[in-house]
Design a protein around this nucleic acid. Sequence first.
DNA 1: CTCTTTAGTTATCATTTGATAACTAAAGGG
DNA 2: CCCTTTAGTTATCAAATGATAACTAAAGAG
Lengths: 142, 142
Amino acid sequence: MDKGELFQQFVRFTTSVHQVTNDMTKEIRIENITTVQYKILEFITVSQPVTLSEVSECLHLSLPNSSRELKKLIQNQLCEKIIVPNDRRKFDIRLTEKGTALMNKVFQQLELKFQERIDNLKEPELKEIQEAIKILQTKLFT
Amino acid sequence: MDKGELFQQFVRFTTSVHQVTNDMTKEIRIENITTVQYKILEFITVSQPVTLSEVSECLHLSLPNSSRELKKLIQNQLCEKIIVPNDRRKFDIRLTEKGTALMNKVFQQLELKFQERIDNLKEPELKEIQEAIKILQTKLFT
DNA sequence: CTCTTTAGTTATCATTTGATAACTAAAGGG
DNA sequence: CCCTTTAGTTATCAAATGATAACTAAAGAG
């Protein structure tokens, strides 16, 4: 296989993914939440419980800046620190009930847009898509 | 098919794609180029020629802000305006030679990282990946 | 017990990004 | 020919983000 060509396809593909997800999330504006704060919330949602260092590393934010943004999220009562017994320097971060409710609402909106997007597809195509996602998820985006 | 489950997979998948591409592009820092400016360059690269309105719309930037950032890119001689004959309000934007050279270098770096990533995969898996990309590209991320 | 490393905090400053108002100039419709 | 719309510009201000220094406090190594 021509690996150069595969790379070209990869670039076009990831660009499309970015554009589509951007369009889907674009209108989702939450009060008092900035873009970075939303990304942190999203990360917590899919990975909780997480430590601050993990937030920092995965989102490419410095620890001081992560700390600052987390503080604001906690002030908004969207997430909370949970003390972990073995190491008193660290703490786990989790969504609060309010945060969970908020993110559920966001994901419901997203799901609606997703359903629209696949509305015209029939069962066999959906199967194909599911398979394709599984392959890429395990072999390329790990 | 359970469309709710498919949505869950979709979310996990797009999250992975974002993380991987983020990691791949993270270290790429170009002198005098901010994140937004890089995104504009990237967009021009894959879609040129483009108009300023297209930049604005696709990257979700206001026209004034797009104009400002484009100006800086032009000052850095990375792209240029090209007058289009039929409509003197518009212009096309293209990479200059310098801009093209720069983006080629960037894409070469990216390709290296991509090759590393698929290095352990054999021919049949590469075929699978290529097929999977094609399916998602045409049916889901259009 | 000391020294080093890890995890996070607080404060501060510069830069980037976002938003808006007021503008020019060409295109297009009637 | 006038009026409206489209495409882009310039200026300005506020907010978000990035970077860094100086700090605390616990963990771990020897």
